[in-house]
Amino acid sequence: MLKILKYSFYDLIRSRWSYVYFLFYLILGFVLLFLNNDVSKAVITLMNIIIVLVPLIGTIFGIMYYYNSKEFTELLLAQPIKRSSIFLGQYLGVAGSLTMSLVLGLGIPFVLYGLFKSDAIFDFSLLLVTGAFLTMIFTALSFNIAISNENKIKGFGYAVLLWLFMAVIYDGLFLMSLIIFKEYPLDTFSLAATMFNPIDLSRTLILLKLDISALLGYTGAVFKQFFGTDQGLIISLLMLILWTVFPIWRLSYKSKRQDF
């Protein structure tokens, strides 16, 4: 598996896309800090970008890579290698290189602008951790879509739809249901609903740090328990891990049974 991981990783690095991605974040980080000159404000702007862009790029990259390397995958399948290690190796290669681009690309400008002296370091590292999680999750989801769809156009369509659903439509439905059922106690429901969307989940995780004063404004024991203590942080992180592990498990499960 490691060999395939290494191969995919270097393959991506050679294909220059990782560089482009890395440079994009590098420039973004520098521009943000140059324009704001305020690390904590830049963290807020970055959060908006990470929540929207990272899943999108993870999805598109994952699905593209899978379809592109399909012939190579079929070649590998003819060899006496475990199927799960082929797919997991490829997946980890893609997710690893994307995560690295993200962390380095954003990390370097922030470190250069004196992050270690700023008190935003915890917010920022949380941002990077959620960014990494989102990359892993959405790449895994796109691999799942790709492995289930032979047809590339269909696969692409589903992948983009997945992103659109998670990033925008889900919140819209969520909001509508909250407004329609506002007569009922909704605090448990609203917290549960955030758990079923990794984007909302990462947003909540960052909100816990950035907007805690606003979140505590709502009267409700469940909210208070969740946002007021470390419970919120722990549960959100656990759910993110679950969101990562589950698609990876399905990927290896599916790859064993798939008829290529």
Partner: peptide
């Protein structure tokens, strides 16, 4: 305005949909 009407919607703070 929405949060005033339905306080639970505060969990949607800073989401893309809200920005739109």
């Amino acid at each position: 305005y929405i949060v005033n009407k339905t306080p639970e919607t505060i969990v949607l703070l800073r989401s893309l949909f809200m920005d739109i």
